[in-house]
Design a protein around this nucleic acid. Structure first.
Lengths: 209, 209
DNA sequence: GTCTATATAATGATAGAC
DNA sequence: GTCTATCATTATATAGAC
């Protein structure tokens, strides 16, 4: 449920900043541009958020709350379905998230860590009851799995171009992408152990050197 | 082979810009900061590159050449080993590449497309001679495969933090990561078809609606 | 090719009225 | 809470000497 001030200028500013930061990155966006999109004067940003950096932190916190399922559900990531929901979030939030992961805010880092923790638990549970392959290094696998889960978020424009669609997040494109990903995750890509064996041989060679 | 002017101020400026753009992003980096790192005056950047934007394009072209294996080997991406070599490129080049993919320069887009084309060829060949699993949608699989290949490039700081290493690209961390990735690509992650079947059932439901 | 010095514009932040 | 007006700073780009 939304708090009442989400209808005021403060929230409009925050949402405008969210959009612009996501589209262009923090440094490129000017205070004036945010104010113009929000339909307020530039001075109002300072009044509500102190500085441009304060506004960024408000955006980080807001997006982090959204992904986690609202301010009242701090542990919502424990439900793996929540992760999929995140990738289906509104486009501005997705774009902002992608930038935040690359630009390295504290909230983005904490969110990444929480997702890895939740994923590791999900994969470990699955390994125990046989639905998931055992891993040589479960922690690293969980981390890699999360980067693969998030990759479409970051490469969305490139994927859209290569696949010949307008938006990688429209229903048809999402289905193509996730179907391929699930297939790769289930069947693997390499049909036999030759690549794995070659890797292990190379690793042994490296250790000897 | 390097051209002779790679030893002059022009190349020093370009390399300094490459580092700073990769570390901080284009908009945040000032012409003065680049000049300071290159040990030249700010005015020299304008003399050689016209503008900051011109300098960026020079960086894009240079990195694109490096990844492709030098200006004389425009088709080097056809060799899949070149892709792995790219990920082992010097840290400044990697960081720059990650930013370029997100910020969407023309050269980065062309490079991504070329990598997908080369990968699709590699996977198709493998499918024909049985080393690679057949795919329901080969083009989409190639695109997804490339985003997974590039994911560690983009999420490097997060991976380093989660794995507890200083640099995700030091030899030990690289080995952990790629071993996990190869394992996942060979064995898959899900042990039976339950996730795939659930996906197909949900897709059928969606089409009906 | 490289520098010093400067023109010109845009930016983040703030003071003070309403 | 919101505005207008403005300040101080910093940015890119360029002119002109060496």
């Amino acid at each position: 449920m939304r708090s009442v001030d989400d209808l005021t200028g403060r929230a409009r500013i925050r949402d405008a900043a969210l959009e612009l930061f996501g589209e262009q990155g923090f440094a490129r966006v000017t205070v004036r541009a945010i104010a113009a999109r929000a339909g307020v004067s530039p001075a109002l940003l300072g009044h509500h958020f102190g500085s441009k950096e304060g506004l960024r932190q408000a955006c980080d916190a807001h997006v982090s709350d959204l992904v986690r399922g609202g301010p009242d559900a701090a542990t919502a990531l424990d439900d793996p379905r929540r992760l999929a929901a995140m990738l289906e979030a509104a486009a501005p939030v997705r774009r902002y998230l992608a930038r935040a992961f690359l630009e390295g805010s504290d909230d983005a880092a904490a969110l990444f860590d929480d997702i890895v923790t939740a994923t590791a638990g999900f994969l470990d549970d699955g390994t125990r009851d046989g639905r998931v392959q055992p891993a040589d290094d479960p922690q690293t696998r969980a981390a890699v799995y999360v980067t693969w889960l998030l990759a479409p978020l970051v490469f969305d424009t490139h994927l859209a171009r290569v696949l010949g669609v307008d938006d990688i997040h429209d229903p048809a494109a999402t289905m193509r992408l996730s179907r391929s990903a699930v297939e790769m995750m289930t069947r693997g890509v390499f049909r036999d152990d030759s690549v794995l064996d070659a890797w292990d041989a190379a690793a042994k060679e490296t250790r000897r050197a």
